[in-house]
Amino acid sequence: MNPSIEKLYQIAQKEKRTIIGLMSGTSLDGLDVALCEFTGSGDQTTVVLKEFLTIPFESQTKSEIRSVFAQQNIDFPKLCMLNPWIGRLHGKMVNRCLKTWGMKSDDVDLIASHGQTVMHMPKRLHKNELFPDSTLQIGDADHLANETGILTLSDFRQKHCAAGGEGAPLALYGDYLLFSSKQENRVLINIGGIANFTFLPSTGDFSKVFATDTGPGNTLIDAFTQKHFDKAFDENAIIAKRGQLSIELLDTLLEHEYFTQSVPKTTGPELFNLDYVKKAIAESGVEISKEDILHTLCHFTAKSLTQEIKRSVNLEPDTVIYLSGGGMHNPLLVELIKQELPNVHVKIMNVLGVSGDAKEAVLFAALANETLAGQGFISPNNSEERFFMGKISLPL
């Protein structure tokens, strides 16, 4: 028997599994690396976050990814070369983390790699009946596995598309495994490049659980800040706080049909980008400062997020909202969310035992744990079928 296959079988039988979750989102800040210890599977899954680091991307890495990221026309040879390059880069970053933590590759059972999204194209966006829902993440896991010497699961979103979903948001599955509660209804908001939320009813009824993207998270705020203020992001919303809300621009930004489509739904920077903002400014006819635009973009994220929550979730008195992702560090954004949801408790994810910054990396580790040791998940379009996510890459 292939020794790696035998090792995979042995890992699945272990009482506890050490899994590293990797996440690099649309914000391109860096690679989130979460060292997790899992026990059990399904609704008996428990996780302890042992270590967490974010390894920032160098400017060249960001530039290389942006050259193909959500672009209509790209240098195709560049995309081909980036796929293994990103895989090796992520592997080197994992090795750096292991050295920092005083660990060896043999101390880790598995890596769960999200990869780097470069295009997300659900049918609701491409509207071509010939083609299915599609998404593309690069960072080849064979190269990552060889770089680290650790078995690797990757390409989770492809199986979701194959099973009838849109490839996102996948938080639904990990959130249900790790954060369901019988004491309260929970809405878990993640504000990365794109904002999404998961609704977890206190009944534990999976048929009532759902997750959906709501629109832009940090993607427009960060892109506008980078272009017009030469900063990676608006730290503590200092620039945005200097501006004022333009009702006319906000209303125009919210006019897209996406915001009236039923949930669950997905989106990305392919739709919500600076061209979208430029068009909205022209259509609204406003003449405002760049600070006012940035301030209004914060309102746009908060409004599109909270209006979907109010439309889709019965916010009973015991409902609690938990925030994660980079947006939880934006004080203006958090305050706007609280203003839109005045009768709901809003807390930071950390109180549930997992850092809000690490949550997405932890969730992909949870998906890998379920694929290896669990019974899988209900198919997105067939309650009688179950499916598992992730392709397996064996190290040399």
Rank of each mutant, 00 (worst) to 15 (best):
29 D>V: 08
30 G>A: 05
31 L>R: 04
34 A>T: 01
35 L>Q: 01
35 L>M: 04
36 C>M: 08
36 C>N: 07
37 E>L: 13
40 G>I: 05
40 G>A: 09
43 D>K: 02
43 D>G: 00
44 Q>G: 03
45 T>Q: 04
46 T>C: 12
46 T>M: 12
47 V>K: 03
48 V>F: 15
49 L>P: 01
49 L>I: 07
50 K>D: 08
51 E>R: 14
51 E>W: 11
52 F>E: 11
52 F>Y: 15
53 L>S: 10
53 L>H: 14
54 T>K: 07
55 I>R: 11
55 I>G: 03
55 I>M: 13
55 I>A: 13
56 P>K: 10
59 S>Y: 12
60 Q>E: 15
61 T>L: 14
61 T>K: 06
61 T>G: 05
63 S>I: 14
63 S>R: 14
65 I>G: 02
67 S>K: 13
68 V>W: 09
69 F>H: 11
69 F>R: 07
70 A>H: 08
70 A>T: 11
70 A>C: 14
71 Q>R: 15
72 Q>M: 12
73 N>A: 13
74 I>W: 11
75 D>W: 08
76 F>L: 15
76 F>I: 15
77 P>H: 12
78 K>W: 06
78 K>N: 09
80 C>K: 09
81 M>C: 15
81 M>Q: 15
81 M>S: 14
81 M>V: 12
83 N>F: 11
84 P>S: 08
86 I>A: 11
87 G>A: 09
87 G>D: 03
88 R>P: 05
89 L>G: 02
89 L>R: 08
92 K>T: 06
93 M>T: 10
96 R>A: 05
100 T>C: 06
101 W>L: 07
101 W>G: 04
101 W>T: 06
103 M>W: 02
103 M>D: 04
105 S>A: 13
105 S>N: 14
105 S>H: 09
107 D>W: 09
107 D>F: 10
108 V>Y: 02
108 V>D: 01
110 L>P: 00
112 A>W: 00
112 A>K: 00
114 H>L: 01
116 Q>K: 04
118 V>S: 00
118 V>C: 02
119 M>R: 14
121 M>A: 09
121 M>T: 10
122 P>A: 10
122 P>G: 08
125 L>G: 03
126 H>D: 10
126 H>P: 04
127 K>M: 14
128 N>C: 10
130 L>I: 14
130 L>N: 11
132 P>C: 04
132 P>T: 06
134 S>T: 12
135 T>F: 02
135 T>L: 02
135 T>V: 06
136 L>G: 05
136 L>T: 05
137 Q>H: 04
139 G>E: 01
140 D>A: 09
142 D>H: 10
142 D>G: 12
142 D>K: 07
142 D>W: 08
142 D>V: 10
144 L>A: 01
145 A>W: 00
145 A>Y: 00
145 A>G: 00
146 N>Y: 13
146 N>Q: 13
146 N>P: 06
148 T>Q: 00
148 T>E: 00
148 T>R: 01
148 T>I: 02
151 L>S: 00
152 T>E: 02
153 L>S: 00
154 S>K: 01
154 S>P: 03
154 S>A: 12
156 F>H: 04
156 F>T: 03
159 K>N: 04
161 C>N: 02
162 A>C: 13
164 G>D: 07
169 P>T: 06
170 L>W: 09
173 Y>H: 03
173 Y>F: 09
174 G>E: 04
175 D>L: 10
175 D>Y: 11
